[in-house]
Design a protein around this nucleic acid. Sequence first.
DNA 1: GCCGTTTTCGGCCCGACTGTTTTCAGTCG
Length: 574
Amino acid sequence: MENADIAKIFEEIADLLEIKNDNPFRVRSYRNAALIIGGFPESMRSIVERDEKELENIKGIGKSIHEKIVEIVKTGKCQFHDELLKELPPGLLELLEVSGIGPKKVQLLYEKLGIQSVDELENAAKKGKLRDLPHMGEKTEEKILKAIQELKSRKGRFRLSLALAYAEPLVAYLKKIPGVIQVEPAGSLRRWKDTIGDVDILVTCKKDAPVMDRFVKYPDVKEIIAKGDTKSTAILKSGLQVDVRVLDEKSFGAALQYFTGSKAHNIAIRDRAKKMGLKISEYGVFEEKTGKKVAGENEEDVYKAVGLPWIPPELRENMGEVEAAERGKLPRLVEINDIKGDLHVHSSESDGIHTLEEMVSYAMQKKYEYIAITEHSKAVGVAHGLDDERALKQIKAIDKINIQLKGFKILKGTEVDIKADGSLDHSEEVLRQLDVVVGAIHSKFNMTVDEMTDRIIKAMSTGLINIIAHPTGRIVGVREPYPVDMPKIIEAAKKYGVMLELNSYPERLDLNDSHCRLAKEIGVMVAISTDSHNRLHLDYIRYGIHTARRGWLEKDDVLNTRPLKEVLKILKRE
DNA sequence: GCCGTTTTCGGCCCGACTGTTTTCAGTCG
Ligand SMILES: Nc1nc2c(ncn2[C@H]2C[C@H](O)[C@@H](COP(=O)(O)OP(=O)(O)OP(=O)(O)O)O2)c(=O)[nH]1
Ligand SMILES: [Mg+2]
Ligand SMILES: [Mg+2]
Ligand SMILES: [Zn+2]
C-alpha cells in the first residue's frame, strides 16, 4: 500500500459519504487527508513502522484518520471503506467522473432508476428516462451524453510543459481582443505544478469588451461547456479544458489571488480573513460589517489586508506557507538568475543531438560559468554509453577545449550507471579523474523497496559519486517511481556527502517538489540540472527552478547557484 | 472529521453557471 493507494481509499470514502448525504465537513476532512497523503514525501508505511505517533503531527490528520492509516498499512484494508462499499455499489464512484454529475444526482439515479455504471447511465439518457426525475429534463440528458463522450476520451492530467504549450497561444489570442487590459495564466499553471488538470486564465478588461464571445470562437475550441458574463469553460481539440474568468481591473489582485489557488490555500486565507472581520472573494477584501472594500487591485494588498506578506504562487498549497508568512519565515526562493551552470548535460558523444562545442556555446549565451558533460556509461547501450577508454578520450578532449575558453569551464563528468548490485559502470581510476560524477539507475527497476534503496545507498557509499540523478526514476504520467525509500536515501546522502539532482526535464521533474522540501529539511543540497540532450533543453532549467521553489528551496540549498570555484570545492571527493 | 487570536465545542470560503425551477438546487471554480 503506497501513499497513492491510501489517498485513493480516503478519496473514495469521501465520495461515498457524500453520496450518502453525510456531513459535508466530514467529507472535506477525508478529501483533505487524501490530498495531504497523496503529496507526502515519506510513505505512510515507513512512518507507521518507525513510530505511528508521528502521524499526529500532520495537520489535517486526526484520531480517526490516523487509526485508519495504521489499519490500512498493517492489514491492507480499511473496514469503514469496505462497509461503505457494501452499502453502495462501487460503480457509483465512476458515475461521479462524468462532469456535471455530482453526489446528489448519483444518489437520485441510483435510487430511482437503479443506475450503477456509466454504461447504464448512457442507456437511460438515450432512452429519455432521465427527464422524469426532479430537476432534470431533455437538456440534462443531452448534456450527460456529451459529458460521457468527453469522459471516454479523457486523457487525464496534462504535463506542465504540454499545458503551457496550449496556454501560450490562447493567452496571446485573448490579449488581442479589443478592450482587454491584462491576461494572466492562473491556477496550477501559475503555481507550476508538475501536472495540470485544466488551464485557468484570468482576464481584466474595459466594460463591454467581447471577451467571452471571442474566447468561445478560438479556433482550437472543440466544445463549450459553459459561457457566462464573467466565467466560461471550453474544451480544446486536444481534450484540455480551459476556464476563463473575466473581471474588472479594479479586482485584478483579488481575482488573481482567487484564481491562482490552490483551493486549500484560498480556504485558509479566507478563513483567516473571516476571523479578522473581513471577507475575501475574487472581487476584493471587504469589511464584514460595513461592506467597505479595503483591497483588491493588486495581490500584495490582498495579503497585506490579512496581515501577511505576499506569498509566492509556488508555495500556495496550504502546506505551512500561511503560518510561515505570519511568522515572517517565508523562504527567499531560488530564482532562475541565481543559476550559474548545469551539471548534467549530454553531447553527441553519447545520445545527445549537438556536439560538445555546440552545447558549450549555448551555455555561454545563457551566461553560465560552467557545464558538466555527463555522458552515459556503457551499460546504457541504447544511448551509446562510453566505456572507460572513450571516457578517457573525452577527458583529454575537454582539457584541450578548456584551454581556449575564457570565463567558462567544461567540467569533465559522467552519468555513470548504477548497476543492480550498486556497483558503478566505470573504473575507479576513470571516476577519480573526473570533476563530477553523476550516478543514476537506468535498468532493473523491478526490485523491492529495500533492495532498490540499498542499491542506491551502496553506490553513494563508494565515495565516488557526487550527485544522484533523477533519484526516483518517474516519468510524469507514464511511469511511477521505482520503489525507493526517499527519506532513507536523503539521510544516506547526508551521511555520505552526496547531493541529489532535481532533473528539470518536464517529463521527469525528479526530485519532485515534496522531496526537495524533505532534502532541505534534512540538509542535503540539490543540483538543479537539465539532462540536456540538445541545446534547447538547457532552457528546461525553468521547470526545475519552479519545482525547486515549490519545494521551498532557497539559493543556498541549490548547488549550481554557486560560482565555479565553490562548486569545484564542493565536488572534490576524498 | 478536524481544530483552537471566540479554544475541547461549535464552526468549517465564497461565488458563477445551468436547467429547472416559479424561487433554487446542484455542480463546479
Ligand atoms: N475559494 C475557492 N477557490 C477555488 C475553489 N475551487 C477552485 N478554486 C480556485 C483555486 C484554484 O486554483 C482555481 C482553479 O481551479 P482548478 O479546479 O482549475 O484547480 P487548479 O488549477 O488549482 O488545479 P488543476 O491542475 O486544474 O487540477 O480556482 C473553491 O472551492 N473555493
Ligand atoms: Mg486548473
Ligand atoms: Mg479550472
Ligand atoms: Zn542523463
